[in-house]
Write a protein that binds this DNA or RNA. Structure first.
Lengths: 188, 188, 188, 188
DNA sequence: TATGAATGAGCTTTCATTCAT
DNA sequence: TATGAATGAAAGCTCATTCAT
């Protein structure tokens, strides 16, 4: 792994666990065993580091996500919806991705970070809307754009509460109730 | 209004719109027309200001919330649940409370702020759980602790997406779908 | 004890243990259970508090010292000199006076404090010179002003090292050697 | 001279003449023509600057001191003792070293500074004890550890009074009386 | 006498950023 | 690429002092 990657790796960990504002470039350098000059050689400034880190993180998450689409080939709508839900819940419980999600919620909720990443956030939201669209538009009882917004929001809320709660959050049971609820709502 | 209140008012606005870390004491002082010494006379340090601001905000929100309980006297479970939902959605759309909610999500998602306010956050979560408990335990098909966690989480997610999204977020339609969904799930 | 005395008592203890510059008026107030307004009502400013504290401390020490002069009536020069030495060594080992001495050495060695108390320090030095003069001028082999300066300095040095050293400083043995030395030098 | 040395040089002068607590980093920077950032780049904090300054000063003093040991080769005990005393008195009267001694007494007498430098002070005291030991243990009438403590203390006291007294302090005469006294005491 | 709110200057320290090497 | 010395602005905080009550 080259030094630039080392720096980004250290940055993502520190941003997620301490927050972007609370993380100094000096800390990133120490954690990555890299000099300050190196960081400012590869990244225009701290905001640029944030953006590149965010992009890299989104890539990693979507690499994982692309498997679902592949495995959904030839299944019924109901099965594909359940598959998608299962994938999402598995992914948020994956310890390797926990950091990414924590980081993500910080970005969403901190006005100053939102500003820096606005375009990237919007782009990703469109992607998520699209991935629900292909399923929901096949279900006559679905209320397409509204249900997609709602789904995204609710999953966000569950992930947020799960990530920042203690050990005993009943994620598995919530998942079951959540899926039941949608199957009922959509008459599947 | 005395100067301490002025300072807290300014702080709440700046914390919500810019974020806690990005808001300097100097900015708070300027906005409140107050000296730096004054702030550190009334608040042990910046963290203490954050805590007092959070407590004050929670008081204001719960003052608003207490009306619901009163107006729920003598109604059916279904009506009370709907009332509660309506109240929550109204409250999150209230421009006067928007700041409070924005601030709230920052606190929840920023590890460093969570640490400072951990006890207060836990306390408030218990209160929310309790307010759903009194209704859900009367519904045989409800899955008490799990459905409460899920409700809180989903509402969180909707509020979060609504607050930080643009103007055209379909909150009213989501509210309808959301209520329908729960009436179905709970067989009401 | 009135509040002014309370404040001075607290000040002397804090000045001695922490140093004058490191002691804030707020700390003095808290230790004395007194308000800041009160302190600035009785003392023009912090320097004035220092001066009044120094004067009070000098009074206490000299009250103790005056006993020696009284008990020296009718004794031989040698006995009077030994008495004086004994008194000085007893006094520096007195735990009740330890604070005063510690404070004293700070004052002597810190240029900024010296400046504030210059006149009081000079005055006290003259008094000490005088108390040795009455004895030394009776001893033909003594070298009056020089031996007085040397005596004062050496005692200063011993007190300083004793006060700031650990528990096992051999003060008693040093006292014996010290007295022997002077009896030899002065041919007594 | 590099900027770090400039900063230390300025610090030593200001600490000695104004006192450590009364000297701000800003003052050091101005005197050294250096930025505040530079100081905190090279020194962890103000206490660390104090420690490094103290170490540097001790080095300079001991460089001067090491000449004595060399020139003492092959002399009698009496001559070596006198040489040592002469060296000490010369050194405390040396205007170039005055600052170091003034600084030294502040450190010794200010509890907060002592705390920071405790280990370094202890170490240096052991060194001084050792340098007297090699001479005193050769003199049968000397009372080794006690006389060393006493010598160190007395010299301390004389230096302290000389340094902070006015111009007309009779240092030369005190030196003569001091040496006589010890030759008598030790029967040399 | 006594209180404590209020001030403003100044302190130590942090930090993103630049630049010579 | 890579380093780390150097900068300067700004941060959080302390503190002596004043003043209305």
């Amino acid at each position: 792994m080259d030094k630039k990657q080392q720096a980004m790796q250290a940055a993502i960990e520190l941003f997620a666990t301490q927050g972007y504002e609370k993380t100094s470039i000096a800390q990133v350098c120490e954690a990555a065993n890299v000099s300050k000059g190196l960081v400012f050689h590869h990244f225009k400034n701290k905001d640029d580091l944030l953006r590149q880190v965010f992009v890299r993180m989104a890539e990693i998450i979507s690499e994982v996500g692309s498997n679902v689409d592949a495995s959904n080939q030839g299944l019924s709508v109901k099965e594909r919806l359940i598959n998608l839900f299962e994938h999402i819940f598995v992914s948020m419980a994956d310890p390797k991705q926990k950091l990414f999600y924590q980081f993500d919620y910080q970005v969403k909720c901190q006005p100053s970070m939102r500003l820096i990443l606005q375009d990237l956030l919007d782009e990703r939201y469109q992607l998520m809307m699209a991935s629900f669209e292909v399923i929901l538009t096949e279900i006559p009882t679905a209320n397409y754009p509204v249900d997609s917004h709602m789904l995204i929001a609710e999953i966000d809320g569950i992930a947020l509460n799960y990530l920042f709660a203690g050990e005993d959050y009943p994620l598995a049971q919530i998942k079951q109730r959540f899926i039941n609820k949608y199957l009922l709502l959509l008459g599947l």
